[in-house]
Structures are given as structure tokens and as C-alpha cells.
Simulated assay, not measured.
Amino acid sequence: MDLFGNTIGTLEKSLDYASAKNRAIANNISNADTPNYKAKEVVFKDVLQHSMENLEMKRTHDKHLSYAHNDSSFQTITKNNTTYNHNGNNVEIDKEMTELAKNQIYYNSLIDRINGKFGSLQKVIRGGN
């Protein structure tokens, strides 16, 4: 029995994405002065688009929806095509700090949403009190 539909699973995957993105950004910031370090980025849309193009399920009825499934909806890539610093490093610290702030807001909103779901469940279990 699934109490929330697919909401908790979706929120869990979103939290995984936000955590992976935070690790990549933190790695970039900590290596901002490392010679020849190439910045990493967590991408989502590219992987989704790629999986939708390459996977087609057999539909036995016209009203069946197509289905695309990928265990990992994001991946971490290395940006090798640019160099910004004299030492071969391509980390833009201002951009990384901005991305970190945006990702923290996104992560916190996910946590608030999942807390709301569990709060609703608690309320039902207690009988509406």
C-alpha cells in the first residue's frame, strides 16, 4: 500500500539530486586554486532527454502511455572544454557560490515538503489532533 502515491519516492530522488549537486559544488569550491582541476557539474535534463530518446516500450493498446525509466536521473560530468585561470583551472568561484545558494534553497524546500507529508501522516494516525 502506497500512502502518498509516488510523492515520497519523487522527493527522495530529488533529495539525492540536490545532495549530489551540493557535493559537486563543494568539490569545485575546495579545488578553486588547484592547478588543472576541471569543475564538475551535476546534470539532469541531458540524462532525461537521452533516456527518452533511447528507450521505447512496447505499447499493446493505443491508450497506453509510453514509459521511460532510468535508475539514475542525473549524472556528474566534468567540464573539460574551458580554462579560466592561468593554472589551467576552470572553477568560477562566484558562479559556484551562486549555485550553492540556489541548491540550498531547493534542498530546504524539499525537506519542508517531505516534513509536511510526514506531518499529515502523523495527524491521521493521531485521529486529527
Rank of each mutant, 00 (worst) to 15 (best):
D2W: 04
D2N: 09
L3D: 15
L3T: 05
F4Q: 11
F4A: 14
G5C: 12
N6Q: 10
N6I: 12
G9E: 15
T10Y: 12
L15R: 09
Y17W: 10
A18M: 14
A18H: 02
A18F: 03
A18S: 14
S19R: 15
S19P: 09
A20Y: 07
A20R: 12
N22I: 08
N22F: 12
R23H: 15
R23N: 15
A24W: 08
I25Q: 13
A26Q: 15
A26I: 03
A26L: 08
N27K: 00
N27I: 00
N28K: 10
N28A: 01
N28M: 00
N28E: 08
S30D: 10
N31Q: 11
A32R: 14
A32G: 06
A32Y: 02
D33Q: 04
T34E: 15
P35M: 00
N36M: 06
A39D: 07
K40N: 02
K40D: 01
E41Y: 07
V42P: 00
V42F: 00
V42Y: 00
F44Q: 12
F44V: 14
K45L: 14
K45M: 10
K45F: 05
D46A: 14
V47R: 05
V47I: 15
L48Q: 13
L48E: 11
Q49H: 06
M52A: 11
E53D: 09
E53W: 09
E53Y: 08
N54Q: 10
N54L: 04
N54V: 03
L55D: 05
L55F: 06
E56V: 11
E56W: 03
M57R: 07
M57F: 04
K58R: 09
K58C: 08
K58I: 13
R59P: 01
T60V: 03
T60P: 02
H61W: 03
H61I: 01
H61G: 00
K63N: 07
L65T: 09
S66M: 03
S66I: 01
A68E: 12
A68R: 10
H69A: 06
H69L: 01
D71N: 06
D71V: 08
S72D: 06
S72K: 14
S72V: 13
S72Q: 13
Q75P: 14
I77M: 05
T78G: 00
T78M: 01
K79R: 13
N80E: 10
N85R: 14
N85S: 12
H86W: 09
N87W: 01
G88A: 12
N89W: 10
N90H: 10
N90Y: 09
V91D: 11
D94T: 03
D94I: 03
K95G: 04
T98H: 15
E99P: 13
E99S: 13
A101Q: 05
K102H: 04
N103L: 00
Q104K: 05
Q104D: 01
Q104S: 04
I105A: 04
Y106H: 06
Y106C: 04
N108C: 01
N108H: 06
N108Y: 06
S109Y: 08
S109E: 09
L110K: 02
D112Y: 04
D112A: 02
R113M: 04
I114K: 01
G116I: 02
G116R: 02
F118R: 04
G119C: 01
S120H: 08
S120M: 07
L121T: 10
K123C: 02
V124F: 07
V124W: 07
V124K: 05
V124L: 12
I125T: 11
I125F: 08
R126A: 12
R126D: 11
R126F: 07
G127F: 07
N129T: 12
N129I: 13
